[in-house]
């Protein structure tokens, strides 16, 4: 599933470490998410949306690979 986590993070001037800290996950998890190698759980997806202040649909695109 394609996601826009890297774009959102860059727009807000956050580092991968900052985002990992905010979500309570490892930096490796953020790297995997951004590369699209790992699809997060619903709980983590909601946390991501809350950190970026947007809707889940704006972060993930199930149509695109």
């Amino acid at each position: 599933m394609k996601n826009y986590i890297r774009d959102n993070r860059s727009e807000r001037g956050m580092t991968q470490d900052d985002l990992a800290e905010a979500l309570g996950v490892s930096r490796q998890t953020i790297i995997s998410l951004e590369k699209g190698r790992y699809n997060p759980s619903l709980e983590l997806a909601f946390k991501l949306a809350a950190v970026f202040g947007c809707r889940i649909e704006e972060l993930f695109d199930p149509e695109e690979e």
């Binding site: 990992a20 996950v25 490892s26 930096r27 998890t29 995997s32 759980s41």
Partner: peptide, 10 residues
């Protein structure tokens, strides 16, 4: 680095 955080991916 993967298991230190004990997150859902690990």
């Amino acid at each position: 680095p993967h298991f230190a955080a004990d997150d859902e991916r690990w």
